[in-house]
Design a binder for these strands. Structure first.
Lengths: 174, 174
DNA sequence: AGCGCCATGTAGCACTCGCTACAAGGCCGT
DNA sequence: ACGGCCTTGTAGCGAGTGCTACATGGCGCT
């Protein structure tokens, strides 16, 4: 039982129950070990959470590669709508549970959360650049426009106002 | 010391320290009373949080009326940029601290959080409709487009990627 | 064979959590 | 003056928190 074998089990527990109230004993139970051993392997809880966030960022990269289509989109709007549609599938709900916990941690100034979030946004941004139409006049700018609308509509969906976010998606030019 | 005199003090504490780890004893200390009395007045912690969320929604309405300009914007983009600029002022940071906690609670399925969030989004949507240019071809749709971009750029700012959100704002048509 | 390190279990510490039991003051109607 | 409510204080419960002390086993090195 090393860090590397533990982390996927810890990540699975966190995706089901949220990052915010993940305490050592439930985490340990989920990973088939003890709080004692989690501290032994990671030093303290902060270090454990930092390692866990890094692992989650890796899972996000893998999800981008595997669950999202490989072809380029026909337009900026189509690209945004693809991401929105795919990320709305139920198997992505656990991911968003932890994502909004990360955002909440960021806005409280937590360093580890901010770094993990920045990494994930970079990954998504690069993915969007790669999936814009080849003839997009300004892919860097276009990708940022798409990202902003995607994140807005995802937040609105999270709070039950998908009606607003979907209308916003529909007005994306290009 | 009634519910009504307590709530502003509780709200102030929550805006400073976040909703997520607001426990009875610190809340009581901030309000100059005891955990015993908070339970006495509100019944249990869930009811207290529900009352607090309603109060926070009221504060949000007041903030919209007082801190934001009264005139109409010259374009959809100007409207979005105004909201983004005003809400970026440091006195709004505590508000966002609780807002992202609310979003996180929503994505965990908490009823009270979802209701509070829906109310706040309705308030903001109505405000945006009222502040679009009078000649906007479709104010209902335009307001939703503006809202989506605003929320996206606010989230990106919360995680330290304002560079993305501000580029997104700049591409809003109209 | 003996020494030392790595891995792990058992207990426990001091603390916070939401909540409750109990008692006692203060105020009001009779 | 007295009974009954509304409000409040003190103390505590049982559970959970991050973390530590201590002991014990196994395994490799000499």
């Amino acid at each position: 039982m090393s860090r590397e074998t533990l982390l996927p089990l810890l990540a699975a527990h966190v995706m089901e129950h949220g990052l915010a109230d993940a305490s050592l004993r439930p985490l340990a139970r989920a990973a088939g070990t003890s709080d004692r051993m989690l501290i032994y392997h990671f030093g303290n809880k902060d270090a454990l959470m930092a390692a866990l966030l890094e692992h989650l960022a890796g899972m996000f990269a893998a999800a981008l590669d595997s669950a999202f289509p490989r072809e380029r989109s026909l337009s900026r709007r189509a690209c945004a709508e693809t991401v929105y549609a795919v990320s709305g599938r139920p198997e992505f709900a656990p991911f968003f549970r932890v994502w909004w916990d990360i955002v909440s941690g960021c806005s409280n100034g937590d360093r580890a959360y901010i770094e993990a979030a920045a990494r994930m946004m970079d990954l998504l941004l690069a993915w969007v650049v790669d999936h814009l139409p080849l003839d997009d006049p300004d892919p860097e700018m276009g990708a940022r426009a798409v990202m902003t609308v995607i994140e807005g509509s995802q937040m609105l969906r999270a709070v039950g106002r998908e009606d607003i976010g979907e209308a916003g998606l529909a007005t994306l030019e290009g």
